[in-house]
Design a protein around this nucleic acid. Structure first.
Lengths: 152, 152
DNA sequence: CCTATTCCCGTTGACGCCCATAGTGCCCCA
DNA sequence: TGGGGCACTATGGGCGTCAACGGGAATAGG
């Protein structure tokens, strides 16, 4: 298995550490990620976490823009300024920095959510709420609303 | 890692010194910067800080202007005459000069923001405000493009 | 001579490294 | 088929190292 799938909730210990689920670590290793890149989601209280290829993708995208226009600057501001590297310690744990806590609202527990090529970090309660919304949107789609729009 | 990433806030001590984040110092060393050059951003209350290659970026921009126009001259004046070298002391700290304070509005705390090939210095409050604007612009961009797509 | 900078040292707290323990699933064997 | 034991994960905690930070002393420059 080489994709991030399923989701788990882990407890944060007194030192602010949390174990990355074993099956996620296995994927990380299989993909050869030596470092984890975490990015604050644009419109969600979650972090996207993946390998350096995640960052590369953004940088390639930025390269397509005129470097002196606002858009390029905004993009860099987002993926560099709102991104960070996560260090896995020897026991496969990461520490929940304020950088992550501020954006996600995480305090005592963390939800890890597989998203295929990357995974996400959520505050469990918010994840549940968002999941419910997402399901509702999909249901509505099926009922015949025109597909492809993103109701916010 | 060889890119300036993430953002942190540091306190300025009574002597006006502030620690450059250890991670940034590591990048500086890895890139072989012997000196740090700080430029006032053209349109933002922030400083761009990096190696001397930082100037390349600005000079490219100047080259795009008509050399007979006032703009080119203004730009040259700005980037060549309005920059300053930052000295790292033995503990990896820099001093917040009035030159920096005037332009950024920094007083008691400084935010360091990674921007890939360089980093920025902000007054934390202003950074938050600008960051929110940048995010809003990017969101708008996304809604203008094809719906439902997310970079993986 | 006075002030601003630089050097150096000590303290504190955060973080990484390592080990211990408990809970769980799995496998082998009786 | 049930029990014992192995393997592994999640989690807690001790401890050493290093970064952040404050402050005294030396130095330079006006």
């Amino acid at each position: 298995m080489d994709r991030f799938l399923s989701n788990t909730v882990s407890r944060i210990d007194a030192k602010g550490r949390v174990s990355v689920p074993a099956h996620f670590r296995a994927v990380v290793q299989k993909r050869g990620y030596s470092e984890l890149y975490a990015l604050r989601c644009l419109d969600l209280p979650a972090m996207d976490v993946g390998g350096l290829d995640l960052l590369d993708r953004y940088e390639q995208r930025i390269a397509l823009e005129d470097p002196f226009l606002q858009t390029a600057d905004d993009m860099s501001f987002f993926c560099h300024g709102d991104g960070a590297f996560l260090k896995l310690d020897q026991d496969g744990r990461i520490t929940m920095s304020d950088f992550i806590r501020e954006h996600t609202g995480v305090s005592s527990e963390v939800a890890f959510v597989g998203r295929g090529n990357f995974f996400q970090i959520w505050e469990p309660g918010r994840l549940a709420a968002y999941g419910a919304q997402a399901r509702a949107r999909l249901l509505q789609l099926r009922q015949g609303t025109k597909p492809g729009e993103r109701p916010e």
